[in-house]
Design a protein around this nucleic acid. Structure first.
Length: 411
DNA sequence: TCTGGGGTCCTAGGACCC
DNA sequence: TCTGGGGTCCTAGGACCC
């Protein structure tokens, strides 16, 4: 009986999926073979690089930089718009294939999956088979990292790309992981890298060699976490179901600066509608409402407030959104607005505040609007205040059935 | 900078209570 | 009271991840 953890990571996910989709729909040019990116719409001020081909990477183009800057580096660069619906289909197909190998499969993000393999076969053979099957049957490549825990598997999948299987077993830590720059470690970002470098810590091995109490007192709990990772210590299980969400939010960058309260409130209402629909789809209530924005000079602010009682009512939540926005906004032009709700709890128990009454009509209205929108489309029904406003009545990301847990700062 | 959108976790200070 | 310390809640901001 063998047991190993796999981390399966799609190479340049959005770009690979876009390329595969296009080939399967009659196009002959493979985006992966030329300098290309999946990038946001510059005219809508969403122009950043979401994914890049390997030829584009050779020009020094990086994920997250502006499309403008990417084109400066490579004038012949091809930029295509993201088509998220396609990527969800590709992702779902990959997960279905992976589930054939184990009942313990964790979808970590849209393009990353953990698998806990327990069986008679050599784990390395199994990993190679999964890699090959995804390539031949689905048309895109993945890297697979194999290790004794999720952290080692994840680090291993980041070794040379694309289309590779790598191991990082305990006995290989010293040789394969410790020489790497410290920023290659999960949870070591830009700021932590600088703090570590300032004290002469440059490699994962340097970090691993520190005294445990020294880093604990210096960088507190996050410091202890990365020190354990550097030593290969990590033991979280591959969870079949993600935990319930702790917050739900939507934000949007507007094509033009928002300059009036009227327009700002319409955008916020559109966002609140989406957030509340997702909240109800999760069968959750919220007790915390947050409004945040960035102004024309990209400076961001936020304000949040606790509600008297938990709710999923669009009217109640939007009322708080308005209050918070009016307290926060100083009248400057805005380029991005967001609404999120937190401190969620299951909606199966309703605790009425002493000061409130149960508004059955409002509850039924929300339920009915959700049903109509789910059946006939997100804009089948919308508030008349949006008419002729030029502002979309429902703003925000896909309302997926299962709303992947997009992230976890911990494995 | 021409700089997206979805999240989680941690820290820290003040309020408030015992 | 010229007041100690611990616990919890609230809010703002920062760091990190995909």
């Amino acid at each position: 009986m063998h047991r190993k953890i796999f981390h399966i990571d799609v190479n340049s996910a959005y770009l690979s999926w876009e390329a595969a989709w296009r080939l399967q729909h009659g196009e002959t040019l493979d985006l992966r073979d030329i300098p290309s990116i999946v990038g946001g719409d510059v005219k809508k001020r969403r122009g950043i690089v979401l994914a890049k081909s390997i030829p584009a990477k050779a020009y020094g183009i990086q994920t997250g930089e502006t499309v403008y800057s990417a084109v400066q580096k490579c004038p012949s660069l091809i930029s295509v718009a993201p088509q998220y619906e396609r990527y969800v289909v590709a992702s779902d197909s990959m997960v279905a294939l992976i589930r054939e190998y184990s009942p313990y499969v964790q979808r970590y993000s849209v393009d990353e999956v953990f698998l806990d393999y327990q069986g008679k076969r050599d784990p390395l053979d199994v990993a190679e088979e999964i890699r090959e099957r995804i390539k031949t049957t689905l048309g895109f490549t993945v890297n697979i990292g194999v290790g004794e825990n999720k952290l080692l598997a994840k680090v291993a999948s980041d070794f040379t790309k694309p289309d590779r299987v790598h191991t990082l077993y305990r006995e290989e830590i010293k040789r394969k992981m410790w020489p790497l720059p410290v920023e290659d470690l999960f949870m070591v970002g830009r700021r932590t890298k600088k703090k570590l470098n300032d004290r002469g810590i440059w490699t994962i091995g340097d970090l691993a060699a520190l005294d445990r109490d020294y880093i604990l007192h210096w960088l507190k709990k996050p410091g202890l976490t990365i020190w354990e990772y550097a030593n290969g210590i990590e033991n979280s299980p591959v969870k079949n179901e993600g935990p319930p969400p702790k917050s739900v939010g939507n934000s949007t960058t507007t094509a033009f600066d928002v300059e009036t309260e009227e327009d700002a409130l319409l955008v916020l209402l559109g966002l609140t509608e989406t957030v509340c629909m997702r909240l109800r789809a999760h069968r959750m209530y919220t007790r915390l409402v947050n409004v945040h924005f960035r102004n024309y000079s990209f400076v961001g602010y936020g304000r949040e407030r606790t509600l008297y009682s938990a709710t999923d009512s669009t009217a109640r939540i939007y009322s708080m959104v308005k209050t918070l926005f009016r307290e926060l906004w100083e009248g400057e032009p805005l380029r991005q607005l967001g609404v999120s709700v937190g401190r969620l709890s299951p909606n199966d128990v309703t605790q009425l505040s002493f000061f409130e009454t149960w508004d059955e009509e409002a509850v039924q209205l929300d339920r009915t609007v959700d049903q109509v929108r789910n059946k006939y489309g997100q804009t089948a029904l919308y508030r008349s205040s949006f008419l002729d406003s030029g502002i979309h009545p429902v703003i925000g990301g896909v309302i997926a059935e299962e709303d992947y847990p997009m992230m976890a700062s911990l494995l």
